[in-house]
């Protein structure tokens, strides 16, 4: 242990009235890191009926609207692709004159087959393959970033984006517009359910909870969208995946 760490912890021992060279450990206090019993929550999340899922989508819709998120329910992948194409066509880049779009390397995003859609237009589509060394430049050049978050939370209109190989952090951050694709079965009711699923993930890399477009109210408390992050957020709800529910959680 480094010297300053030793003195630091010794000061805490002193402050707590313990012997300075105390070596008490977490094993002596099992309740300190006790894991909550989440079986009930997991059972609830994994066994939602179609009707309950619809209710969650409705709750999400209400909360998303309040935060300025554009919510688009999609019947199919083709439907979702049409929505995305329409957004790309109707918006203009903020920081450049050319339309670049960057996509996460994720099956739900790949299913849109966007590269096929723009053969006659000046739209360049990039994918964030982890082997690509020019990703930073491509991300900065893009005006739209498309991701498929691991979890959606209806109560707070949040999407949870986990960092994974091929799914970098900047895709949902640096472009002016963020489009998130969420499968219905990835939507949970509240943060407690979301944290439970995150625990099931095991070891987590960095992650971010995103609830709406970037905003600030620093000038005379007037709300303005688009401070540093995306000024526009679209959330497209895809049908449940064909596989087992909550496939992303690994079971």
């Amino acid at each position: 242990m480094m010297e300053n760490e030793y003195f630091f912890l010794r000061n805490i021992h002193k402050a707590l009235g313990l012997a300075p060279d105390n070596d008490r450990s977490k094993e002596q206090y099992p309740e300190l890191f006790a894991a909550p019993d989440t079986r009930k929550i997991l059972h609830r999340v994994r066994n939602r009926t179609a009707e309950e899922r619809n209710e969650l989508v409705e709750l999400l819709r209400t909360n998303a609207q309040a935060l300025g998120i554009h919510l688009h329910p999609a019947e199919s992948e083709a439907d979702a692709a049409a929505i995305v194409v329409e957004i790309i066509r109707s918006r203009e880049p903020e920081f450049s004159h050319t339309k670049h779009v960057i996509l996460h390397d994720h099956p739900d995003v790949a299913a849109l087959q966007l590269w096929k859609r723009f053969t006659r237009e000046a739209v360049t589509v990039h994918t964030t393959f982890s082997s690509d060394h020019e990703l930073r430049e491509k991300t900065i050049a893009s005006f739209i970033g498309i991701t498929a978050p691991a979890i959606g939370v209806a109560e707070s209109a949040t999407v949870i984006q986990l960092t994974r190989p091929g799914q970098p952090r900047s895709t949902s951050l640096v472009p002016s517009i963020h489009i998130a694709l969420l499968r219905r079965d990835k939507l949970v009711a509240d943060l407690e359910e979301a944290y439970t699923l995150l625990r099931e993930e095991g070891r987590l890399d960095s992650m971010v909870f995103i609830s709406g477009p970037s905003k600030t109210a620093d000038i005379e408390a007037q709300m303005v969208h688009g401070a540093h992050g995306p000024r526009e957020v679209h959330l497209i709800i895809l049908p449940s995946s064909a596989g087992p529910p909550m496939a992303a959680t690994g079971d």
Partner: peptide, 18 residues
């Protein structure tokens, strides 16, 4: 929730491009 809640605790993993 605030618009963003970022969680991090280390440098990027080997396969993270950013």
């Amino acid at each position: 929730l605030s618009t963003y809640v970022s969680f991090l605790g280390g440098p990027a993993s080997k396969d993270d491009p950013d």
